Amino acid sequence: MTNTDAFSTLPNVKFVSGESSSSVILAANGPADAHLEPLFAEYSLEGSGYDLGSIVHALVLTEDAVLLKRFRFDCEAGMFCAYGSDLEALYAVATGLERLLADTELVRSMLAVAQERDLFD
Rank of each mutant, 00 (worst) to 15 (best):
V13N: 06
Y43H: 14
D5L: 12
Y91I: 07
T9S: 12
H57Y: 15
L97N: 09
L101S: 02
Q115Y: 13
M110K: 14
A89D: 00
K14L: 09
A41Y: 04
D51P: 11
S48M: 00
A65Q: 11
L59E: 05
M79P: 00
L106R: 15
L111Q: 09
R108V: 01
E88V: 07
R117M: 11
V16M: 04
Y43C: 03
M1R: 13
G96L: 06
E19K: 15
G78D: 13
L67F: 10
D121R: 13
V107S: 03
S85A: 15
G30K: 03
G30E: 04
N3V: 07
T95Y: 00
T9V: 08
V13G: 06
E105V: 13
A58T: 08
V56P: 03
A27Q: 11
A65F: 05
V56T: 05
L45H: 02
E63G: 07
G47Q: 02
H35G: 02
A65W: 07
V60A: 03
I55Q: 03
K69V: 02
A94E: 07
S21I: 14
L101T: 09
T104K: 11
S54H: 05
V13S: 00
K14A: 10
A82N: 06
P38I: 03
A28G: 05
I25P: 01
L45M: 02
F120E: 00
T9H: 09
A112T: 13
Y50H: 13
G49D: 02
D103M: 06
G18N: 03
A92G: 05
L97K: 07
T95D: 00
R117N: 14
Q115A: 15
A6Y: 14
L45V: 02
A28S: 12
T4G: 00
A28I: 06
P31E: 12
R72W: 10
K69T: 13
F120C: 02
E105G: 09
F80M: 02
A89Y: 10
N12W: 05
T62G: 01
G30N: 05
A58G: 05
R108D: 08
M1N: 12
L61V: 08
R117P: 06
A94C: 09
A32G: 07
A114K: 14
D121G: 08
E46G: 14
H57R: 12
N29H: 12
L111Y: 08
S21F: 15
L26D: 02
A89M: 04
L36S: 08
L68Q: 06
R70L: 11
L26F: 01
D121L: 11
L67I: 08
G49L: 01
D118V: 11
F80N: 00
L10V: 11
L68T: 09
E116P: 13
E76M: 10
K69R: 12
F73I: 11
L90F: 10
